[in-house]
Amino acid sequence: MAAEPAKILELREMITQKEGRHTHERFASSTLSCGVPRGALTEVSGSAKTEWLIQFLRENPSLKVFWAEVRFSLLPTALHQRGVDASRLLFAECGDELFSAVRMALRCQVFQCIVSPSIYREEKMLKALQLLAEKSNATVFLLTEELQSAWPIKLQFGVKRGILGKGFEIELKKNKGGEVSAPASFPTPVLTETEETFSALSEEVT
């Protein structure tokens, strides 16, 4: 006898709750209809990735953020100008210690959002980060030039500026467990054509 899909989903949720994992929570984003998963890795690329991330932080003002870089080039004044309260951000210039810094920040369980350049080429490193992110229920943003194919990453997309520099155009590459819709408290965002195309593609694949 075939089990009902709803029952299977319910069972899966119960198992993840028992294991202390949180798979269904998502942070809202006005430009990304599927939201950003908590307790998972999200990889962002494109020519407007930092701008998009700043907008995301502005839309989620309660998040405590740890922003790690190999050599610090971010300009915190720009964050302040774009409406992000810099006092809830902690920055780190890590050099070669980037991985251990991010791991340490995740183990603290203080930060709900961690930003790091995506320089982890070994899958076991990504897996370690994914497990820690899941345990601390934090979102790890990996900023990269080119999206990589790695299974521990749950959400991958590219961001570029919209037409006439207004808004963003998002190209969704991967959205594991993307059945979760945007939270009801936020207005449903208007998708750009590209995003719609990719959402449709993603649905087809699912």
Binding site: L90, A101, C108
Partner: peptide, 24 residues
């Protein structure tokens, strides 16, 4: 207090001056 504790912990691991906040 929790935030400060995290900051101290990270500084202990990474070294002084490597972890910081921004003053605008």
């Amino acid at each position: 207090e929790i935030f400060n504790s995290a900051l101290s912990q990270l500084s202990e691991g990474l070294g002084k001056g490597k972890v910081f906040r921004a003053s605008i």
